[in-house]
């Protein structure tokens, strides 16, 4: 069987990582605080890359569940930067337009970045409201949200960056990866 190595090489290029060193000691998976919510362990993603299993990886939950807490990197004997690998994989999943396995998490990122695009800063009240509208989870945490509002935990009026032109340039131009929003 011939294995297509182009996918792994592309992830390597984007993340600046080499994946040959992984010997599946499971330090990454053992220390990961969110591994139970993943469909593949972080090391399994590396193995799948070595076998060229692009589609399964890009459609996996794992790449979206990773929080980037660096627990895996701190424990990896070969210092494979798994969070950088996950960043590259998510970027590729979006560019290729594959079906995202965790649409709520993507909606979270998207609504957050929309706030940045609009004001250069995140207006938490609107961000929460828009995330809820986008996902239909309107009533989840309604009580807690109201409590936060009543106790003055949200800034009532948004603040924004004066030089928004610069923010727009950052968010609108193509920076090596394909434009995504």
């Amino acid at each position: 069987m011939k294995i297509d190595r182009r996918f792994m090489e592309e992830v390597s290029r984007r993340s600046g990582q080499r994946f040959e060193g992984c010997f599946h000691c499971l330090s990454c998976a053992g220390g990961c605080p969110v591994v139970e919510a993943m469909d593949y362990n972080p090391n399994q993603i590396i193995r799948m890359m070595q076998f060229g299993m692009q589609e399964k990886i890009l459609k996996s939950r794992t790449i979206w569940i990773c929080l980037g807490c660096f627990s895996c990197l701190a424990q990896c004997p070969n210092r494979v930067h798994i969070p950088a690998m996950m960043d590259a994989l998510r970027e590729m999943a979006l560019e290729k337009g594959v079906e995202v396995a965790e649409p709520e998490i993507l909606a979270f990122h998207r609504q957050f970045l929309n706030q940045v695009r609009k004001r250069g800063r995140v207006y938490e009240l609107e961000f929460v409201a828009r995330y809820k509208l986008a996902t239909g989870a309107l009533f989840q945490d309604m009580g807690a949200g109201l409590k936060m509002l009543m106790r003055g935990r949200f800034q009532v009026l948004p603040s924004r960056v004066r030089n928004l032109r610069e923010i727009r340039k950052i968010m609108e131009e193509n920076h090596g990866g394909k434009k995504w929003s």
Binding site: G68, I170, G177
Partner: peptide
Amino acid sequence: EDWNCCGSSPAHSTNHGYALLLAGR
């Protein structure tokens, strides 16, 4: 003066350019 959002998880999770430039500004 005039600081902007660092990009947080949503930027580095989706586009390395956003992450670099938002923090870089």
